[in-house]
Computed example of a mutant assay.
Amino acid sequence: MKGNVVVLNGTSSAGKTILARHLQSKCSEVYLLCSLDAFWDMTPYRIPAGSINFPNMKLAIAKSVRALAETGHNVIVDLVFCGQKTYRELTHELEQFNLKIVKVECPLEELEKRELARGNRRVGLAKSQYESVHCGVLYDLEVNTFLNSPEQCAQQIIDSMS
């Protein structure tokens, strides 16, 4: 039995993680959360995210999600594509599964406010990702975390899966 995979793609501070947690709580089936942040949390202290020491981190995530789905787990993926390579790798690894790719949108001005309020992200990170994160990505659904609450966005995703 193969699992379902929901990929949430958007810039840093777009609300992907809180959306993923709401989605987990609202889904009738159990979904594991596989996030880019969790993978970076595995790295040694003081080695920056995106470091050349970890050139294939996003490919490792894609292969990990594939392994989870192959063993029957449903997975929500919290990720930032930042270019075609990550998108191609992920869709290649997951093409045999029930895959839903969701665009998580938020206006740049709000992203910058959220980024400052969080205090745990490099200032300007969301802006640096804003133009490239969605380029060339084919989405099954789009949600807007500025116009809608996390609960509403989660429900939109659930409704699209039925």
Rank of each mutant, 00 (worst) to 15 (best):
N9F: 02
G3W: 09
K100R: 09
C153I: 04
M1E: 10
I47N: 08
L99I: 03
I76V: 12
Q155I: 06
N56M: 11
K2R: 10
L94N: 10
E70V: 07
A67V: 12
D140N: 12
G136I: 04
K100M: 07
N98T: 15
D78Q: 05
G119D: 04
Q84W: 00
L79G: 07
V65L: 04
N148T: 06
M57H: 13
N9D: 07
S28T: 15
E29M: 09
V5M: 10
S128W: 00
V143P: 00
G15V: 02
K26P: 05
E105K: 13
C106T: 08
Y139A: 01
G15D: 06
N120R: 13
K63L: 14
E95P: 05
I52R: 15
Q155C: 04
G3S: 05
D159W: 03
V75A: 13
I61L: 12
M161D: 08
L141V: 03
S160I: 09
P150R: 00
I47V: 15
N144D: 11
V104T: 06
A69T: 05
V123Y: 14
E95M: 13
I18L: 15
L141I: 03
N120T: 13
M42F: 09
L99Y: 07
L32Y: 07
A67P: 10
A60P: 09
S12P: 07
S13M: 05
N53K: 12
K2C: 00
T43R: 10
S128N: 05
T11A: 04
P44K: 08
W40Q: 04
C106N: 06
Q96Y: 15
L111E: 00
L116F: 03
E70R: 13
V143R: 04
L116E: 11
E142T: 15
R122C: 11
S132A: 10
G136F: 01
L141G: 02
G50F: 00
E29T: 12
I76F: 00
P55G: 00
E115S: 03
M1T: 11
H22N: 12
Q84E: 15
C153Q: 02
T11M: 01
E115T: 02
S132R: 09
N9P: 06
N98D: 15
M1P: 07
G3C: 01
A69Q: 07
R21W: 13
E29K: 14
M57G: 14
Y130P: 02
T86R: 00
Y130N: 06
G124E: 09
L68S: 13
L111R: 00
G119K: 07
R46N: 14
S28E: 14
F81W: 08
N4L: 08
V137Y: 00
S25E: 12
V77C: 09
